[in-house]
């Protein structure tokens, strides 16, 4: 079973999250610059004379496709590395994925998301 993680995080936390994921063997991802708002409704910026409210703030969305037995480790890594404790830390969404096809080889499903040095290889090494 494959899953997709869609994590909305702070722009300035991208490097921390990337490093934390690399440590557990999650290398493949893509990243989108997005704008959005949450409950707290934005921040105040200084203007020419007085200040004004901006509610659509820049965020980073990380997309990762992975096997569901790796889901918890990955979510925990993002939680740990992406958290500041203040409003605006973001959200993690998890979706089921019907199919993955690697264009170069034609591999499908679990095979298509595996690569040397990935999270499964690291886990099996730990067991040895």
């Amino acid at each position: 079973m494959l899953k997709k993680i869609e994590a909305i995080i702070r722009e300035d936390k991208l490097n921390d999250v990337k490093e934390a994921l690399a440590e557990i063997g999650i290398m493949g991802m893509n990243v989108v610059e997005i704008r959005g708002r949450g409950r707290q409704g934005g921040i105040t910026l200084a203007g020419r004379s007085g200040s004004y409210q901006v509610d659509m703030l820049p965020k980073i969305q990380i997309n990762i496709i992975l096997s569901d037995h790796n889901l918890d480790d990955t979510v925990n890594a993002i939680l740990k590395a992406g958290r500041t404790g203040d409003a605006g830390d973001g959200l993690i969404f998890v979706y089921p994925v019907d199919e993955v096809v690697r264009i170069r080889t034609g591999e499908r499903g679990h095979e298509a998301v595996m690569y040397p040095g990935d999270i499964d290889e690291k886990k099996s090494k730990k067991k040895d």
Binding site: T44, A46, G47, R48, S49, G50, S51
Partner: peptide, 16 residues
Amino acid sequence: LLAWRDGHPSVLGIAT
């Protein structure tokens, strides 16, 4: 200084 008193020394304000 006027802008700072209200929060931040805005660069847009200084240029203005």
